[in-house]
Design a protein around this nucleic acid. Structure first.
Length: 307
DNA sequence: ACTAGCCCCTGGGAGC
DNA sequence: TGCTCCCAGGGGCTAG
């Protein structure tokens, strides 16, 4: 699923391709009564407003905040895309099967989009140079909305998000201050909570805890100073490695060219239940448990509870 | 103010 | 082979 490294990979790709492009058309098949009045394009009434506001605008930059993609327009408005579980953005000059009544924007070429996970197109921006930015989203969890310039600093879509873990200003002292907001909570749940630290999801939480030899159910107040320092380093290193490898494509994530990342090839814990722990000298077998309704993978040999 | 748990959604795997 | 059932999980929301 798209977490900080996957979102950053997408943002890096977009910056190479969409800067200066002018939005000529907008299409979406998202609509759900559940999202009526939600201020996202899943509300058909909101989509009409959204379309009117962005037509003719040029893209000036693309940045990331937590797991959100922020596409800045030339009038200082911002298109926000959150890919949630199964969404990813694709950029290219596509041909769509307009005769398909169910989904007229199902891509029929090029080759890269034959991958089934690139074919669930729900949202398309067409630029004036005939290129497309398409959002493929199998399970329709993704969120797309427009943030007007004057609302940017108070929008509900970005409020209550913790610091960016890869920024240099985010040091061990800051890390401790953030996790200590929940001394009685399990460390895995604290890592996943975006209001504590931005951008960590299930994959990088499990990988970081494996690297730092910490049991995912360890209470924050029971962590030793060494464990805190190890976890701080592990969070930074696993996220950085994820970016360097173009993200994790355990299931559906693809970059803007529709290609897989390779972080899943170096997972130590995530989705490796039943396989041997590959920590040097460790004889453990990776286990899967549930914490906070999330599948959690860890090695019971070298990630033991302190008490 | 907190947290546990439901809900959005669909492809794919298990079971029969 | 083909049907039904069930589950993954980020984050918004609500009930307690």
């Amino acid at each position: 699923m798209p977490e900080l490294p996957e979102v950053q990979t997408t943002v890096n790709g977009l910056n190479e391709h969409v800067i200066g492009l002018k939005i000529a058309d907008v299409w979406s098949s998202y609509n759900s009564p559940y999202f009526k009045g939600s201020n996202t394009i899943k509300d058909p009434l909101y989509f009409k407003v959204f379309k009117k506001e962005i037509l003719g605008r040029k893209i000036v930059s693309v940045i990331r905040r937590a797991k959100n993609i922020l596409i800045k327009l030339d009038n200082d408005d911002t298109i926000l895309v959150h890919m949630k579980m199964t969404g990813h953005l694709l950029f290219g000059q596509y041909h769509f099967n307009q005769k398909n009544k169910v989904n007229p924007w199902e891509p029929i070429e090029p080759e890269g989009l034959k991958d089934p996970f690139n074919r669930h197109v729900r949202f398309v921006l067409t630029f004036s140079n005939k290129k497309h930015l398409a959002l493929s989203d199998t399970r329709k969890f993704a969120k797309v909305t427009l943030i007007k310039a004057e609302h940017f600093h108070k929008t509900e879509h970005l409020h209550d998000i913790g610091p960016e873990p890869l920024e240099e200003i985010f040091d061990l002292k800051e890390f401790n201050a953030r996790i200590d907001r929940k001394p009685n909570a399990k460390i895995k749940q604290v890592l996943l909570d975006q209001s504590n630290i931005a951008g960590i999801g299930n994959i990088y939480a499990d990988e970081s805890l494996w690297l730092a030899s910490i049991h995912p159910a360890e209470k924050v107040r029971d962590l030793s100073n060494k464990q805190r320092a190890d976890l701080f380093k592990a969070v930074k290193s696993s996220l950085s490695k994820g970016i360097n490898l173009g993200g994790a494509s355990t299931s559906d994530y693809r970059n803007i060219n529709g290609e897989k990342g390779t972080f899943q090839q170096v997972h130590h814990a995530y989705q490796r239940a039943g396989t041997a722990c590959d920590k040097r000298g460790c004889k453990g077998i990776i286990q899967r448990i549930v914490i906070g309704a999330r599948g959690t993978h860890y090695c019971p040999e070298h990630q033991k509870l302190n008490k």
